[in-house]
Design a protein around this nucleic acid. Structure first.
Length: 104
DNA sequence: CCCCTGACTGTCG
DNA sequence: CCGACAGCCAGGG
């Protein structure tokens, strides 16, 4: 097989779809991670657009921004779903087991 | 082909 | 923490 030279990357939608399908319950990732895993580093924006267009045929709730921000307009829904996956949210923020400092 | 918009990201103030 | 800018990619008019 020598067909590695080319990038042979599948359509953006297929690539992203595969990454989303590869996610497991309780997993959390960001648009940038998905884009990178899909083979499209920097296409985080396109990933968001795709999810928005898809309409819920993917675990969009397992996808958050690099800032830890939840999906605008669905924060409540996403938070609830993530809680169902085993995550914990406090003050609209993902509760982490860090120490110190924290916050506000 | 050009222009605009968008569930993004990182830097600067 | 928040707002403003610039960079990146895909889709629609």
């Amino acid at each position: 097989m020598l067909r590695c030279v080319s990038v042979d990357r599948e359509p953006f939608e297929s690539a992203v779809n595969r990454v989303l399908d590869d996610l497991r319950p309780g997993d959390l990732t960001t648009y940038g991670e998905i884009a990178e895993e899909a083979g499209y580093p920097g296409a985080a924006r396109a990933v968001g657009s795709l999810l928005a267009s898809s309409g819920g045929r993917f675990p969009w709730w397992r996808v958050v921004t690099a800032s830890g921000r939840l999906v605008p307009g669905y924060e409540d829904e996403q938070t609830g779903l993530l809680e169902g996956e085993g995550h914990t949210f406090v003050n609209g923020r993902l509760q982490r087991t860090s120490s110190t400092g924290d916050d506000d």
